[in-house]
Structure formats: structure tokens, C-alpha cells
Amino acid sequence: ATGPYSTDEAPNSLEDITSYNNFYEFGFDKTDPAAHAGKLTTSPWAVEVDGLVDRPGSYDLVDLLKGLPVEERIYRFRCVEAWSMVIPWNGVQLSHVLDRVGVQPGAKFVQFTSLARPEEMPGVKAGLLDWPYREGLRMDEAMHPLTLLATGIYGEPMPNQNGAPIRLVVPWKYGFKSAKSLVKITLTDRMPYTTWNALQPKEYGFYANVNPEVDHPRWSQASERRIGAGLFASRVDTQKFNGYGDLVADLYKEQDLARDY
């Protein structure tokens, strides 16, 4: 492992990681992103930073990240659909980027907005969800050292189907929190709109922490299928906070996680 935040578990192959994706901007099927994301234009790429920040504006991606340390982080990745992978991300800590733009004291939450470009994204064109995709974190979650703005996998630039050129990675939360292809970061004083929560609030909470004790209303979260493990050895127990409890449980010590799911 590289550094205190990475797991020792063997990462999935690049093929696993790039051929099995939920990225509804390209369609509902796991294979749609690999099939359709090739068309996505990722350069140039600007990220707008707005809301309660000292230095708002539209930043070229290169400028936004210039000089910040890019780290390899091998994280477990747990989907709300009860499958998981181990992914070797490359990226910068979100906290470093937020420090760079200057978070104002009144900011309590961060909203992330993904690209919604119908001419390159068939799922956006088809209106599969309420686009653009939006996600959010509480400020302490956003500033946590585990929280990553990932720009690559296996040392290569982020594959389009995984959320090129820059995406969020929050390893102790269900995968849908880790919004892809980010075009906007908004600092706000109230809990922001998030796509899945708005669509089905009883099923997808704002926090969405991985938790085997709190089931999805329609399926169990007690265990997960580890993608790439083959036909007969794929199911493992799900860990609370996806195994990152030592690092993040304190953030929620005042909260009832069955209520704040």
C-alpha cells in the first residue's frame, strides 16, 4: 500500500474498473459508459467554483490543481447496489483544492455538479434522471483527508467512463456520492440538492454512508459481491463505513445513522 489511507487489498483489473460502470449520463446499463463515453470531450475542462468562497470563478482544471500533490490511493469502492471493487485512484485531496479557493466561515456544505452535455451523453439526451447530476458533502466530510478529487486510475488519466477528467471519490460512502466529470463546486450554508435523494428520498439519504446495519428499503446491505472475484468466491461481508470507520466514525458520533442514512 502507498500511504496510510490505502488498503492492502489487491486492486481490481483496469478491465473490471473500466467495463462495469454506473454513469447514467451514458445509459442505464453497466456497459453503456464504456460503449458511449469515448465521445466525451474532456479537454479543455473548466471547473466553476462559486458560493461562499474567497476566490470564486471558472478555473481551468490545470490551474485549479497546479502544484497540489497527486497521490495514489487504493480505496475500496462500495456501490449502493451491493457490489464492490478495489480501485487505485490518483488524485488530490479535496481539502487542498478547497483551501486554495478559500472557504468562507459561513460555508457548511459543498455541492458538486457533473457535466450534462446531451450531444455527447445519450443518457442526458434521453432524460434518464434530473440532470445535471448533483451530489453533496458536509464541510467536515469534504475536508476529510480521505476525500479525493481523482484525476486518474493506475497512474493513467481518468478513463472517460469513470468520470474524466476529474471526479469525486468518498470511499466510506456509497458510490453514487462520488460524482463524476465535475464542472462545478459550490460552497453553501445549507444542505444542497442531491440527485438520488431528490428522486427517492426514502431510499437514498444525503449521507449515504456504507452501513451493513441500515438496509436499503428494497435490499440488504449486509454483504456485497466483489467484482472480479469470479463465480464462486465473490460475496464478502460489508463493513461499516466501508472499513474506514477508524478514520471517519467520529464525524457522525452525534448522529443516529439509521435516521441520517
Binding site: 438496509d215 428494497r218 435490499w219 440488504s220 454483504s223 463465480l231 464462486f232 465473490s234 460475496r235
Partner: peptide, 20 residues
């Protein structure tokens, strides 16, 4: 067999709790 891998407690829970 292949999906739940004989985790009978989970299978049993699913059979009474999960509408689908």
C-alpha cells in the same frame, strides 16, 4: 448458490423483508 452463496440468514431475511 452463486449470489447469496448459502448465506441462509440473509436469504431468510430477504424472503420476509424485501418486497422484490
Amino acid at each position: 448458490t452463486l449470489d447469496l452463496q448459502f448465506r441462509w440468514s440473509e436469504i431468510g431475511a430477504d424472503l420476509v423483508k424485501r418486497p422484490y
